[in-house]
Simulated assay, not measured.
Amino acid sequence: MNEPLLSVRGLAVNYGHVEAVRGIDLDLHAGEITTLVGANGAGKSTTLMALSGLVKKAAGRVSFDGRDISAMAPHRIVAGGLVQVAEGRATLTTLSVRENLELGAYTRRDGAAARARDIDHVYSLFPRLAERAAQLAGSLSGGEQQMLAIGRALMARPRLLLLDEPSMGLAPIIVQDIFRTLQRINAEGLTIFLVEQNVKQALKLAQHAYVIENGRIVLQGSGGELLGDPRVQAAYLGH
């Protein structure tokens, strides 16, 4: 197999005296969807924030496309092609949909025409955003705000998209729409790392998957393998 696009070795994160992430290893390969699943408080979101440079690492090395980004500032990580959609969406509620999307391109220096083409592409992925382009983000439904958060991240032209709980608090029909769109953008070539509470959906979507418990990786395999694993079924799927 080719070298991983993102390689993590010995990643540890502490909050005070609490070990939130305890020396984990991960490999994400270009063109794949990889998912990280586990119970609330297992260390999923902390892992993503550590990769994005948003929380301090106690130990470990993170390499992106062969480059050590362990100590890199978050805005430089984004400019390098690793972009995160935060849990809770974090749209800028007093700006319009289009202004939120334009802000997503703040690290780019390729001109207004290229950014306009990418906004049109986001609108093709999420037609509701096109219908609400002039509307304030704060007036959108939860599902529409999630679409906007993903669209804004895509405006940075990521090579790797990190998604933190994109289905949280959304109606099942909206979740299906969002997961179909993730499949589409992955088919277009974007590598995705998905943290998700909906374990069944995440494992169906992912080519590779990791299970984290108490800050440690305890299982890994293909999405299909873990979906059929009795331990995963007992712990997360109610079987």
Rank of each mutant, 00 (worst) to 15 (best):
M1K: 07
N2S: 15
N2E: 14
N2W: 00
L5R: 01
G10N: 12
A20W: 00
A20Q: 01
V21S: 11
L26I: 14
D27M: 08
E32G: 00
L36S: 04
V37Y: 02
N40S: 10
A42N: 09
A42Q: 12
G43N: 11
G43Q: 08
K44L: 08
K44T: 05
K44H: 08
G53W: 01
V55Q: 02
K56L: 13
K56N: 04
K57N: 14
K57Y: 03
A59E: 07
G60F: 07
F64C: 05
D68C: 10
D68H: 11
I69V: 13
S70Q: 06
S70Y: 09
M72R: 12
A73H: 12
A73G: 05
R76G: 00
I77K: 01
A79R: 14
G80F: 07
G88S: 14
R89N: 01
A90E: 15
T91Q: 10
L92A: 13
T94H: 15
L95R: 13
S96T: 15
L103V: 11
Y106M: 05
D110L: 06
G111D: 06
A112R: 14
A113F: 00
D118G: 05
V122T: 07
A130T: 04
A130V: 04
A130C: 13
S139H: 15
S141F: 10
G151F: 00
G151A: 03
G151D: 00
R157P: 02
P158C: 09
L161N: 00
L161F: 09
L162C: 08
L163A: 04
D164L: 10
D164K: 14
E165N: 10
Q176H: 13
T181K: 15
Q183T: 13
R184E: 14
I185F: 04
G189D: 03
T191L: 09
L194H: 04
K200N: 12
Q201Y: 07
A202R: 03
K204Y: 10
H208N: 13
A209L: 07
A209W: 04
V211I: 11
I212E: 05
E213K: 14
G215H: 10
L219I: 07
L219N: 08
L219C: 08
G224T: 12
E225F: 02
L227H: 02
G228P: 00
P230I: 01
P230A: 13
P230V: 01
R231Y: 06
V232F: 12
Q233A: 14
A234Q: 15
A235E: 03
L237Y: 07
G238F: 07
